[in-house]
Structures are given as C-alpha cells and as structure tokens.
C-alpha cells in the first residue's frame, strides 16, 4: 500500500469535495484517531492508522482490501468513486436528494432519477453538483450528479432526468465480485 501522490490526492479530494464540500476536513482530521488515504492496486482506501499497521503485516499481493475503499483510479487517470464510500459521504453530504418509495427500486437498479421520482431536493443545488440520494426515511441509497439545478427542477417535465446515477447500494449485489 502506498501513500497517494500529490496529484492523486488532489484528484481524490476534488471528487470528494463535490459531494461533501468542506466537510472533507472532518474526514481528514478526526478526533477519534488518525485516518489516512492509502492506495493499493489503483484503489484508494480510507483507513485508520490502527488498521493500517495491521494491514501492513500482510504481503501486498495477498492483501485484498483494508479499511474502506473510496474508489479507484481508472486507466486514464481519473478517480471513480465506489458505492463503498457512501458510508462516509452520507452523513457529511451537503446536497441531498430524497426519492419517493416508488422510484427507489428504479434507482437501485442503476437508472437515473427522473423528475417523477423526486421527493425532496436540497435548496440551491447547482447543476452538476454531486448529490447523495436518500430514501424518504433518510436511508442513503447512493449518489449521483444533479442534472438540473433546484430552480430548474421545479419547471422540469416529469420524465426528465433530475439526477444522473453514479453509484447505488444495489451494486453490492449487482457487482459483488468487482466491488471490494
């Protein structure tokens, strides 16, 4: 496992700030122990020092996962978030979308969120803002990107897309083998 290089750290943080903004500082500087970002086989993990020291005893070729996988670097060098990061994104999310119970299944099957499925949306959400998707009883379902700003949402057609799907908890079943 490696520490992230400067460029890669920036890429990861840029992506994370899209969802949680300044709350990212809370993830980096935690009162309950030191947590850090580590890279292993192009995947980025968020781990506490304690777990890290334990994981370092495992040979890197045998180490499958440690801590929480936040995402991975694509071959073209972009950072892609995994659904496993949701656990840390949901409590700190700045922009949220709540889905109606009827639209939940659609989203969990990997579809975009249409206007008809939109229950609530955070005020002043800008277009292309990273948002975390919740069910109406505040269960985090995944995350995506706002296709329309809040103002535009009001006037949108019922079938028009409000939020582009990026990851949902259905992936835990759909892509069980690739998701670690």
């Amino acid at each position: 496992m490696k520490r992230l290089s400067e460029e890669r750290t920036k890429l990861v943080f840029e992506k994370l700030t899209k969802y949680i903004g300044g709350n990212l500082k809370l993830l980096i500087d935690r009162p309950d122990g030191t947590y850090c970002f580590r890279e292993q086989k192009e995947k980025v993990y968020y781990v506490s020092e304690k777990i890290l020291s334990l994981a370092s005893t495992v040979a890197p070729e045998n180490l499958i996962s440690f801590g929480t996988c936040f995402g991975r670097f694509t071959k073209s060098g972009k950072f892609k978030m995994h659904i496993t990061a949701l656990h840390y994104l949901a409590p700190y999310a700045q922009y949220k979308i709540w889905l109606k119970p009827s639209a939940e299944q659609q989203f969990l099957y990997g579809h975009h969120v249409a206007k008809s499925g939109l229950g609530r949306i955070t005020e002043n959400t800008a277009q292309y803002q990273g948002v975390v998707v919740f069910s109406m009883n505040d269960l985090p379902l995944g995350f995506g990107v706002a296709a329309k700003s809040t103002a535009d949402c009001k006037h949108a057609d019922p079938i028009s897309t409000i939020c582009f799907h990026q990851a949902d908890i259905g992936e835990y079943i759909r892509s069980e083998d690739t998701l670690i």
Binding site: R3, T9, F13, E14, T17, K25, I28, D29, T34, C36
Partner: peptide, 15 residues
C-alpha cells in the same frame, strides 16, 4: 500528523 496537515492544505486549496 504531517500528512493530515498536507491533506488539509490540499482541501483548502481546492475549496
């Protein structure tokens, strides 16, 4: 603790 400081610096820059 230095890594944390560096990372916070990055976040500040990005924000």
């Amino acid at each position: 603790g230095e890594e944390v400081k560096r990372n916070l610096g990055f976040v500040d820059k990005i924000l």
